[in-house]
């Protein structure tokens, strides 16, 4: 599974943007069939999305398709057409409970079988966008193991559902974010954060991203390519942390090669969770072309 730090929304409106998905600094793109597509254009968008998945070289950039919600007339057609194209994941809006998660799992399983695709190929990222959905985060996260690999918080819709205004500081979303990320970690799946909507406020985006990383989120949606690098950079470890992580990873590999179970770095015992964390840090750095060990 690749990284999902920055996830760029790309409306399925025209081939212009779709052909450039690989070049926008995003770890993954969310090809959108939902909110950015007018009601009368849903069929065209779906077909365009299919052709993009079939023909565009995404060069390893993750391919997520946001389909229309389960309560819409487009939902079934979206899945029927998109699942056989094997995107990495479907992003499903407004999931509210375990039933919703199970329903999409069953539906996708059926389509995968029909299309001769191994069951479980296409993952689901469930969007929690209502008070009910957020409160049911734990059951959604655990409803379809192996299928639902992430839950995400939809800040705009949640604010609307609660009748509140969003602020730059995001205090109003703090509980929701914390709860979603805890539920995700509990289920050993990923948690993704809602987009930062002020395109002119780069510092605000940077601060918010660092904050949600601190909470435990694995990625954040972007609504403009210029946001992707800011998000990726926020995820990148600082050089001191990276140096330390590289030392730990090297020591662990060396120990494994020599068949030693327990290792020590700089005289300190290092156990498995520390090694795992260090590996995650190095993986994130590699994704950003950070300096090689020798350069540090």
């Amino acid at each position: 599974m690749g990284l999902f730090r920055s996830q760029l929304y790309v409306p399925c409106k025209g081939p212009g943007m779709l052909q450039n998905c690989a070049y926008m600094n995003a770890d993954a793109v969310i090809l959108d069939l939902e909110d950015s597509i007018a009601q009368g254009e849903k069929d065209a968008a779906r077909i365009l999305c299919k052709y993009a998945l079939q023909n565009v070289d995404f060069q390893g950039v993750g391919r997520i398709v946001r389909v229309n919600g389960q309560d819409t007339e487009f939902y079934a057609d979206d899945l029927e057409m998109i699942i056989p194209c094997c995107p990495d994941a479907i992003r499903l809006p407004k999931v509210e409970d375990a039933d919703g998660a199970r329903e999409v799992d069953e539906r996708i399983t059926a389509i995968e079988k029909k299309a001769g695709i191994p069951v479980g190929t296409v993952k689901v990222h469930a969007m929690l966008e209502t008070a009910k959905g957020v409160l049911n985060a734990r059951e959604v996260a655990n409803a379809a193991p192996g299928r639902v690999t992430a839950i995400s918080l939809g800040g705009q819709d949640l604010a609307a559902d609660m009748g509140i205004m969003r602020t730059l500081e995001g205090t109003e979303l703090l509980f929701g974010r914390s709860f979603v990320v805890l539920a995700a970690r509990d289920a050993r799946i990923m948690a993704f954060d809602t987009p930062f909507t002020d395109l002119d406020n780069t510092q605000g985006l940077r601060d918010e991203t660092k904050f949600v990383i601190q909470l435990g989120f694995s990625g954040k949606a972007a609504i403009h390519p210029s946001q992707c690098k800011v998000i990726n950079d926020a995820f990148a470890p600082d050089l001191k942390t990276l140096k330390k992580a590289i030392t730990v990873v090297h020591a662990a590999r060396e120990a494994a090669a020599r068949g030693i179970g327990v290792i020590s770095v700089n005289g300190k015992m290092v156990d498995k969770p520390v090694v795992e964390q260090a590996e995650a840090v190095v993986a994130r750095a590699n994704a950003d072309n950070m300096p090689e060990v020798e350069d540090l």
Partner: peptide
Amino acid sequence: TRDPVQLRQAW
């Protein structure tokens, strides 16, 4: 520019 393609070239 806000044009993603131009920004990518510029970067």
